[in-house]
Amino acid sequence: MRALSLALNFTRREIRNRYLGSFSGGLWALLQPLMQLAVYSFVFVYIFKAGPIFKAGAQNAVATGFVPFLVMGLWPWIAFSEAITRSTTVLPENAGLIGKVALPREVLVIASVGASLSLHLLGFIAICIAMALWGTPIQLIMLPLALLVYLQMALLVLGLGFLFSALQVFVRDLGQVLTQLMMLWQFTSPIFYPREILPEPYRDWMGFNPFSYYPEQMRALLLGSESIAPGACFAALIVALAVLALGIVVFRRLDSHFEDFL
């Protein structure tokens, strides 16, 4: 109970911390993905002329156009990767608090993840509504379901956040390595392209990527592309819960030694 109210308090503080003193305030959090969207759309649509290629490979997936397709992958990805990279370094960043105040350290990770995810969720909902107003056939009615999918992603992110933040205390390079790995992860996930355009062996490998479920499910729900098999949904949930459990176990085991290594 106390941990919960603390986590809420810290999340609020975390959100304020990130934008306290920044010129644009919280607006930047919403603008940043928008800029990325503009850059990627420009590169893929006008430079690489990717639209027709995607369409040829997977009519269904990109039926509503490349930008809405990209939105469904890009927002969850930005939330996902930002939450993970930020939460990874949260313990050293709060070393002052850890050595001086008694608090459940999980709160710090939860607050960091919570701040990233909630900010980008706002952005995601905003852009979905904006696109709907623009005339894109987005099924806004499915937004609550999409929210559930987003929550499921939160479990996965939280698990990875616990895991990486605990390891980061001992292996300080993890943060840097992770930034690079995230880029690799980004391009091996079906964010910029539908899974269908991949050649056969690689296409199935994507099933092992725990993130690939989320853009695809968002597209299925909101853009009405080919729906995901219930088995795959279930598997994704299991994976998210398993990662969360692993994260909690590792975090708990290392928790009592954080202050020795910070």
Binding site: R13, N17, L20, G21, G96, L97, I98, G99, K100, V101, A102, D255, S256, H257, E259
Partner: peptide, 28 residues
Amino acid sequence: VLTPSAGNVKVHGRIGALLELGAGFHPE
């Protein structure tokens, strides 16, 4: 705030601890 590496300590009740100058305060 720290976890013992040997033995144990039990505390019953609410602790108010002023351990270090400004611990838990955010300077901004």
